[in-house]
Simulated scan of single mutants.
Amino acid sequence: MTPRRGDGPDAAPTFTERARRQQLIEATIDLVSTRGYPATSLSAIAERAGLSKAAVLYHFSSKDNLTRAALEQVLEQFSAHVAERLARASGPRDRLVAYVRAMVGYQQAHRRHVRVITEMLLDDAGGTRLKTPGSHDTHDRWQHLAHLLTEGQQAGVFREFDPQTMALAIGGAIDGVIAHWLAHPEFDLDPAAAELEEFTLNAIERRD
């Protein structure tokens, strides 16, 4: 018998319910990263998780709700990783280097997560793939990077440039390297990360 929530509709999920939800999210990440978003059905997720389709619908009322929960978890973990690395760095230059390294390092260590992000935040040919607010807005996506660049300028460490434009350029370089790695797994990301760091610093530092 499937355990039910507490008396009220807003009652917190039980331990078993939280475990089942996490089990379903992990199964969804596995399937989306290997089969793609369109080929990931509720039935396939249920089979991968070893549960019934009815159990899936008990915890998540639709495929969109479940895949969105999986995407949100991936993005939260990614953001937490970057934030942790930034917290360890001191000064605008070190923080920017930490950002570039964290962006590459997390994706290198979590290839499945990269596939999920790629699958679920990019449109398919018909433009019908699941979207999240701001997911296609590159301006919003690189706001944190632009903020780091602005901090460096205000501290007199970086030369004068438009932070938004530079953030798009650096972010695009990171995306390009990761896209190549996804297509060519033999590509070595460690020296690539070092080159990205050098590329970034050469683009922004003062040359007095």
Rank of each mutant, 00 (worst) to 15 (best):
132 T>M: 12
5 R>D: 11
192 A>C: 09
57 L>I: 15
95 R>K: 15
50 G>F: 03
190 D>F: 02
146 A>L: 10
173 A>Q: 09
192 A>D: 11
10 D>A: 09
22 Q>G: 09
89 A>E: 07
204 I>P: 01
104 V>R: 00
17 E>D: 09
134 G>S: 10
11 A>F: 11
124 D>I: 06
14 T>C: 08
96 L>R: 04
100 V>G: 01
51 L>M: 08
183 A>R: 12
53 K>V: 12
81 H>D: 12
140 D>R: 15
88 R>N: 00
186 E>V: 13
81 H>E: 11
19 A>C: 03
191 P>V: 11
23 Q>N: 06
92 P>T: 13
165 T>Q: 14
4 R>F: 08
88 R>H: 11
84 E>P: 00
198 E>N: 12
89 A>Y: 12
54 A>T: 13
47 E>R: 14
139 H>F: 14
199 F>V: 03
169 A>I: 13
34 T>F: 00
122 L>F: 09
25 I>V: 14
199 F>C: 02
50 G>W: 04
202 N>S: 11
62 S>F: 06
94 D>E: 15
46 A>L: 10
82 V>F: 06
121 L>Q: 15
110 H>E: 08
127 G>S: 11
100 V>L: 01
33 S>P: 07
114 V>R: 13
25 I>K: 02
141 R>G: 05
140 D>G: 02
122 L>A: 13
139 H>K: 07
164 Q>L: 10
169 A>Y: 00
181 W>P: 04
170 I>A: 06
90 S>C: 04
28 T>I: 05
23 Q>Y: 03
45 I>M: 09
73 Q>Y: 03
149 L>K: 10
152 G>L: 05
25 I>E: 02
134 G>P: 06
74 V>R: 07
135 S>M: 03
141 R>H: 13
135 S>Y: 04
184 H>C: 08
205 E>F: 03
8 G>T: 12
89 A>C: 06
177 V>I: 11
100 V>Y: 04
111 R>I: 03
197 E>P: 00
158 F>R: 07
6 G>M: 09
24 L>P: 07
192 A>Y: 00
40 T>F: 04
20 R>I: 07
112 R>V: 03
153 Q>C: 07
207 R>Y: 09
29 I>S: 07
60 F>Y: 13
75 L>K: 09
18 R>P: 02
121 L>C: 12
86 L>V: 03
197 E>H: 05
202 N>Q: 12
133 P>G: 02
127 G>M: 08
21 R>L: 01
186 E>Y: 10
161 F>A: 07
118 T>K: 10
149 L>H: 13
204 I>Y: 10
169 A>L: 15
18 R>L: 14
164 Q>A: 14
148 L>W: 07
149 L>V: 08
179 A>L: 11
182 L>K: 05
21 R>E: 13
28 T>V: 06
160 E>H: 10
166 M>A: 14
7 D>W: 12
95 R>M: 10
140 D>I: 09
110 H>W: 02
17 E>F: 02
11 A>R: 09
159 R>N: 10
11 A>T: 14
124 D>G: 14
167 A>V: 00
91 G>E: 01
62 S>C: 13
104 V>T: 13
54 A>N: 13
23 Q>E: 05
154 Q>A: 14
207 R>L: 06
193 A>R: 13
103 M>P: 02
75 L>P: 04
169 A>K: 10
21 R>M: 14
7 D>R: 14
178 I>Q: 08
148 L>P: 01
5 R>P: 05
